[in-house]
Amino acid sequence: MFNLIKTLAVMLFLMAAVKLNATPLIVATEGDYPPFSYFDEAGNLSGFDVDIAHALCEAMQRECEVIAVPWVDLLDRLEAGDFQMIVASMAETTERKKRALFTDYYYRSQTSFVGDSRRFIAVSPDALVGRILSAGRDSIQADFLMERYSSSTILLTDNLIESFDLLVAGEVDLVLTDSINSLDFLRSTEGAHFDFISEPLIDPILKSEAHIAVTLGDIELVKAINNAIIDIRLSGIYDQINRRYVPFSIY
């Protein structure tokens, strides 16, 4: 009898262990959103989001695979079950909450317009009537532009790299995106002629907090990630990663 129980227990333990090890967590990020996720010169997926994803997995003691997925496909493929979590600087919106669970925030940032500072000073809807404004498709910035800047032409792109390319080519007047994302562009050679226009925008649509999205219903994973966020913040790993990409704390 006792032996039977022992055997069963060992089997169960092995099964649980196998289950834990056999199914590595697949984490999706964007890949076109420096400095949060991008492909470096060697072609490796890197960035703040990627490093944070690996750090969280280590804190949760899970094996992880981080893959790059186009921004517009992220939530569809999460729902399809291609991966279990998204670490892609995603803001929590009412629409998205119907499709995924969100953890506590893992960094905060602001949204500002970027453009030629010699041509633009004010960024109110009135001042930008008829101008061509660009933002990433399905982003809170896109929602914001469509809601508040109906008198401007809005050009949505699949990722911000495209938007900045259009800005450099003179095809759009202003790009609206996250300040830290813009910083990366502004510090590049192509961005040298551009600048932040006016102050960061403050609006309920423009959330300042970035969250991790998890498959709907997987509350255990949300809890594990929330604890992992606290873990890496306490252990200083978060700050190390933070400093690799931004010289001050963005938490």
Partner: peptide
Amino acid sequence: ASEERRLRLLLQILVHSFML
């Protein structure tokens, strides 16, 4: 001048982060 610009951009984001 370019180094000055780099510092200014950082300063700008840093100062603006207080608005959070």
